[in-house]
Amino acid sequence: MTTTGETRKPRARSSRYRLAQAARMEWIKLRSLRSIWWTLAVTAAGTVGIGAAVGLNTRNASGDLTNNAMAGVVPGLLLVGALGVLTVTSEYSSGTIRATLAAVPRRPLVLAAKAAVFGAVTLIVGEAASFIAFFADAVTLRHGVAAPSLGQPGVLRAVVLSGAAFCLIGLLGLGLGAIIRHSAAAVGVLVAGVYVVAQVIGIIAHSVATYMPILILENSLSTTKPVTCGTSEASCPHFLSAWAGLGMLGLYAVIALAVGGWLLARRDA
């Protein structure tokens, strides 16, 4: 029952815990939950499945076929955003947060480590999902519609940025989880903010609509050419460019994480 002196001295290079150690902890935590991998698998499968289904049903070659192939990204973002929320809130509901913060008392470091690990994983999964969805759509196209290729203008950009959206919405969820701390409430705010409010505002206020996350994805990130609404110029909001849209989503994630980190450092755990 006694502890041995030998195991006592861990040979660490640095003299103090840093982001690297905190990130290793977060990676082990993420890796060791089967539910996370199931959710990510379902997210990717859904994104690809919808892309393939859209391909099967495409009859009109004049539309933005790449944008069509990315149709499954929208519901995929919901799952990855909720997963981001739960990555933080499940620590509160289980009590793990106290073990985490006792191990790494510099709290902003904890959230930074979570964001780095979760962001990297969702970026990889998101890119894989959007590329496979793109090719699944291309393979399933019928009715004499020619499949788009990555070499065409804007196509590669649309696929890559759609994949990046998974990471950014996931980080937005992570930040909201840190701010709100309760799973149901935080998921509710995420869904309301990203989906419901966006749709309502999209209908009633065109000028603001262009800044809504889902509309950014649909009309800025996943398009190969500027969106037009057909009949008249005036009926169409002026959507952000692809890169401005990416910056906007990134800004949302950064704001949520900054506020979440600030609150995490201030509040009792």
């Binding site: 902890m25 939950l33 499940s90």
Partner: peptide, 29 residues
């Protein structure tokens, strides 16, 4: 601090391994 301050879906070993990593404690511990 409290019993069951760990995620119910994670194994005991993974819970400890994560904490060990945060303070550069050797995994063998």
């Amino acid at each position: 601090l409290e019993a069951k301050a760990f995620h119910p879906g994670r194994s005991a070993r993974s819970h400890l391994a994560a904490l060990a990593a945060s303070n550069a404690i050797p995994p063998a511990r």
